[in-house]
Amino acid sequence: MARSLMLTGAVLLCSGALFSAFVPVARSPVSAPATSTGTAAALSAAVLATPQAAFADEGSVWIPALSAIGAGFAIGLAAIGSGVGQGIASGRCIDGISRQPEVADDLRGVLLLSLAFMESLTIYGLVIALVLLFANPLIK
């Protein structure tokens, strides 16, 4: 937990130095209330401290967080790849059928088989995402 607190403090210090490096924009004559910066700082500190409160029992917040991000990438990339592949295969099948209508039955059978194989890769991505979310081997 001490390491997580140090990392959180380092992020707070670095973000303050990062935002102070920019040149401020010229302000209009009507200025915002002075409490808005204090409110924003308090909200930022609360958001950054929330993982500490959630995992105060010496657990690490990074593994579940990165697992959730990895699950999102797994299902997203699997769905995008499968969708593009199925679109290309279907388009080529329609082109083939339009050129030679007498082989439409053969092409349709091959298309359905290849679409099933492509969809199985999406299901593998879903399984990986579910394992990362609910049965993660990296979490005790």
Rank of each mutant, 00 (worst) to 15 (best):
93 C>L: 07
99 R>F: 03
77 L>G: 09
89 A>L: 12
46 A>S: 15
50 T>K: 02
40 A>H: 06
50 T>G: 06
36 S>I: 14
86 Q>E: 06
82 S>V: 02
43 L>D: 06
84 V>R: 10
56 A>T: 05
54 A>T: 04
51 P>K: 00
81 G>Y: 08
40 A>G: 03
59 G>F: 02
83 G>D: 14
61 V>E: 04
55 F>V: 04
61 V>C: 11
34 A>P: 01
80 I>S: 14
45 A>R: 07
44 S>Y: 11
90 S>V: 10
65 A>P: 02
97 I>A: 05
42 A>F: 08
98 S>W: 10
81 G>V: 00
88 I>K: 13
36 S>E: 15
48 L>A: 01
94 I>F: 10
66 L>K: 01
55 F>M: 06
41 A>Y: 11
99 R>I: 02
39 T>C: 12
45 A>C: 15
50 T>E: 13
51 P>A: 01
55 F>Q: 01
44 S>D: 11
38 G>E: 05
34 A>E: 05
46 A>N: 06
73 F>C: 06
65 A>H: 08
54 A>V: 07
96 G>F: 04
78 A>M: 04
36 S>L: 15
105 D>A: 12
45 A>W: 15
68 A>S: 09
83 G>P: 01
79 A>S: 14
73 F>K: 00
64 P>S: 06
72 G>H: 02
38 G>N: 08
42 A>P: 00
84 V>M: 12
93 C>M: 13
39 T>P: 02
100 Q>M: 15
88 I>D: 03
57 D>V: 01
100 Q>Y: 10
59 G>I: 03
33 P>R: 11
86 Q>V: 02
98 S>Q: 11
45 A>V: 13
59 G>H: 03
97 I>D: 00
79 A>P: 00
60 S>T: 07
35 T>I: 14
95 D>A: 12
63 I>R: 03
80 I>M: 15
88 I>N: 06
61 V>H: 04
37 T>A: 14
46 A>C: 14
105 D>G: 04
80 I>E: 12
89 A>E: 02
54 A>F: 11
49 A>H: 06
65 A>D: 01
41 A>F: 10
59 G>V: 02
96 G>V: 01
72 G>F: 11
52 Q>Y: 04
52 Q>P: 01
66 L>G: 01
64 P>D: 04
91 G>F: 11
44 S>H: 08
46 A>V: 07
34 A>V: 13
81 G>H: 06
60 S>V: 01
64 P>G: 06
45 A>Y: 15
60 S>C: 09
64 P>T: 04
43 L>A: 14
51 P>V: 02
69 I>G: 03
83 G>F: 10
64 P>L: 05
80 I>R: 10
58 E>A: 09
97 I>C: 04
87 G>I: 08
52 Q>R: 08
52 Q>G: 13
84 V>P: 02
56 A>P: 12
64 P>N: 05
98 S>P: 03
67 S>C: 13
62 W>N: 00
50 T>Q: 10
75 I>F: 14
82 S>N: 04
42 A>C: 09
69 I>L: 15
41 A>N: 08
64 P>A: 05
